[in-house]
Design a protein around this nucleic acid. Sequence first.
DNA 1: GTGAAAGCGCTAACAG
DNA 2: CTGTTAGCGCTTTCAC
Lengths: 348, 348
Amino acid sequence: MSEPTLHDVAARAGVSIKTVSNVLRQVDGKVSAATAARVHHAIEELNYRPNLSARRLRTGHSDVIALAVPDLRNPYFAEVAAAMITAARNAGYTLLIEETGGDPAVEMSAAEGLRDPLIEGVIMSPLTLDPRSLAARGRAIPLVLLGERDYAGPCDHVMFDNVEASFRITEHLLEQGYQRIAVIGRQDDPPHATAVKRLKGYQKALRRAGIRYDRSLAPVVSGAPYSKVEGARAAEHLFGDDGHPDAVYCFADVLAIGALRTAHRFGLHAPADFGLAGFDGIEEGRFSIPTLTTIAPDFTDMAELAVTALVERIRAGSAIDHRDIRCRYDLVLGESTQVSLAAEFLAV
Amino acid sequence: MSEPTLHDVAARAGVSIKTVSNVLRQVDGKVSAATAARVHHAIEELNYRPNLSARRLRTGHSDVIALAVPDLRNPYFAEVAAAMITAARNAGYTLLIEETGGDPAVEMSAAEGLRDPLIEGVIMSPLTLDPRSLAARGRAIPLVLLGERDYAGPCDHVMFDNVEASFRITEHLLEQGYQRIAVIGRQDDPPHATAVKRLKGYQKALRRAGIRYDRSLAPVVSGAPYSKVEGARAAEHLFGDDGHPDAVYCFADVLAIGALRTAHRFGLHAPADFGLAGFDGIEEGRFSIPTLTTIAPDFTDMAELAVTALVERIRAGSAIDHRDIRCRYDLVLGESTQVSLAAEFLAV
DNA sequence: GTGAAAGCGCTAACAG
DNA sequence: CTGTTAGCGCTTTCAC
């Protein structure tokens, strides 16, 4: 009662196993149509499926790639994961999802593909991975990082321009007339590249508007990845003080959702009492009250670019120089910064 | 520059490959400590890792199990997936995550383990899978379903008692003094087992309170899985009518979040204007405004039970009768039904 | 077009 | 305790 093998199929179809193998792997022009039909019939009858372990052992490649994210429950990473599953399948690969918990050791291990030696390449959203250890990793498995380049390394990076995107959304806030724009998401301990770049874009927009960057309006957020809890905590400082900001720009939608709750506790509501902007374009922000103004990456585009880049690396045997690949994104306007809309609501 | 093999390690350590193999698989009492140390040293030096394809081919088992869920972006399934990854790893298995999109054909294919023949068992959260096709599936791979038993079948089911949980949360609403309790989540087209049971629990609680079940307060929700969009749509009917319900109980937190948005559009707010309860205990409901009263399953417990059951099935070779396994859950009280709390807020 | 034979890296029997 | 050997199911030369 064990699984049928190539031999069984061959015997049933009255051909050699070579022929069955050819049919299976769609080697065209090698097998007559009639024979192919007979083989297919036999496969059907026996409910045969090739033993992938054997094929992998023989060919030396598994067609498995891994995606390493800090936490699947974080809606941003859930979006990434869902898009990657589809992109990987379209490229003929099976995707294995790993959770790193943001743990440096686990991230390093993922970057080495250690989890399972049959993994041919890794796409990772790094949190703590530092340049030196990346350069020193024991096994140079093809690697694509989700996020902008922080340092030179033998891997590709896929992400939109964070400085530019951050600049755009800050400009939007300024255009809406907000003056005291706080920012939630600054990080110090390990100055995460993404946080640094988003802060840079924010500062650039302020400067252009002739507004001085006020450090007290940029509370440091600890812990990674960004979370609702941290957003709520950071907002305490902002709304607790007198003379609270007239707008809050969060480096992640989850931070914004957390901030919204804190504001609610203080009896403050967006957009009536302050403007609010997020980052990431998660579904939650399209249903929060108010809906969030945010930067929404095109997850499908991101996933396709990452998988394509990884597959190229796998095929080329890591003889590829590091590349920076930009994915599409959009500035999405929600109710959280629609001052005029809010006024309308109040009038009703 | 190919990967080192057992032979390389053996040569380096000056022993036979058998000894290396023994050391690797931690076969105790077979290898002297000194030899083991030498072998470990060689493994370290060569940065050797066993070729899993070869091992799998030889042993016939892959230690890979699959989890099939409709959509990873749905926060409920993200919670499930995250818990499963951990539970699987703790049990020595690698978890492969598949998205079915709720498509019957894809679900069937997942139940057959067709995706990859090396998958040893499947845990699935079924949406459309019907009894007959399940009984007729071509390949009887060990299967554990997340959800209550709808029909007899050669698989285990892991879930808390939906009727009971639904009864409890409805009772809570009644205790809070709500009388006209609408329900969002009824399904007709395929009468999904979960929806049926939750409706049953709701009706039971009403009956006990001497309230007649009013079909017009139970709009049908189409599409699966439950989503925010559907929750918002269903709520239109409820809040659009005059004499809207004084409480809304949703069969999923995402439905409740959607309903909250619609209510907001009608200028209604929970708990001031109506009570609201959800189901699933997702993080989002702990940050929504108001926070949700809900039924929160213990995802860790659920995952451990499911993985344990599946592993037993794999080991026993499907000679196990179908079992119903109950996981823990809690009734979580949020602001959405705290009438007194709401009154306090208003007083301020 | 098809068949025979070798071998991918590992584990498990069996001998020593 | 350690070494030798066979073979898991497949792909891939190489003959025919």
